[in-house]
Design a protein around this nucleic acid. Structure first.
Lengths: 168, 168
DNA sequence: ATTTATTTTCAATATATTTTGAAAATTCAA
DNA sequence: TTGAATTTTCAAAATATATTGAAAATAAAT
């Protein structure tokens, strides 16, 4: 397979993959393109490579920057802005985990804590099932929370070495 | 807070939460409703509780069944079908992980293995960055794959006990 | 200060996804 | 069988999301 073909395939499937995870397809594609680009590239390069509009590139790039996955780069002497992506995939993964934890898991756990305090007869079947469901989700959620916290603080080798100990 | 209010809040936010994870909002809401329902309920109950159409309920219920999260229940003497959800949240989580691994991670890893074999000068900067990106994603992916496999085979206590050892 | 290159915004448009609801199919009882 | 209850399907409509492109804003050079 030729590089150009492989590139296209990777960008396209990374986009599809991302869309299963609440990340918009184009954003994931831009991210893919930046990850495989050895040097920083411009908005125009991205527009051309993915055949999408300037506005689209601009918005998604800003989104990627807010996720901490892409950086603006100023090349001296150049007027245009350049962009580059974090290349260490472990850092990419922990960054995504950190952000999603903050944006989604944390608020959910906060809400569940509130919902646990409902008034009503604890003997009532409906009440009982509700409280049990909420508290078991909360419990699982906070385990996940702690685990993700530790994971994202550890570096890759440390984390995987640790896992090996558990998983024989 | 009253039960009815708490129920509404839980259903609504579980729906929003799900939609960040590629699960459609209504499907997640139906799932939430079933999890907090102590006894099996009918399509009509769901229609009424969530004020959505019969077709919508039917399609999403089937989807939930295909995910292994909901079961059809036939109550003897009753004509209508009843539905019930798995209540053990650890089982719910591992079931979701298993399915998503099968549907998303496995195909992605398979594709990456193909993309690694591109022809061209390995000294070329573009080729080098491409191959490095692909192989590092593949490596991380297969670590995740192994870990998820073990997680979903283990039971909750075993898994958490194991994690405790690693994470002090 | 004016021009020119570049980035950003956002209303309009296009695309994708979800939902409806009524018709068709199925299931069960009489 | 026939018919009533129930489930399923799916084209059309509604809704939500993504994309465009040109105008406004910003930044740099002259």
């Amino acid at each position: 397979m030729k590089l150009s073909e492989a590139k296209q395939q990777f960008i396209s499937s990374w986009g599809a993959f991302g869309s299963h995870w609440g990340i918009n397809r184009t954003m994931a594609q831009i991210h893919a393109l930046l990850m495989i680009s050895p040097d920083p590239i411009t908005q125009d390069d991205i527009m051309e490579e993915l055949t999408i509009s300037r506005g689209n590139v601009n918005m998604n790039i800003r989104d990627l920057i807010s996720w901490g996955l892409v950086d603006r780069v100023i090349l001296s002497g150049e007027r245009k802005e350049y962009f580059t992506a974090e290349k260490d995939i472990w850092k990419v993964a922990t960054q995504i985990i950190k952000e999603r934890k903050k944006r989604e898991l944390d608020p959910m756990l906060k809400l569940l804590a509130q919902l646990e305090q409902i008034d009503g007869d604890k003997k009532n079947k409906e009440v009982k099932q509700f409280v049990e469901t909420i508290s078991s989700i909360k419990k699982l959620g906070s385990h996940a929370d702690k685990m993700l916290d530790l994971m994202t603080k550890a570096d890759e080798n440390w984390f995987l070495a640790g896992l090996l100990k558990v998983f024989k």
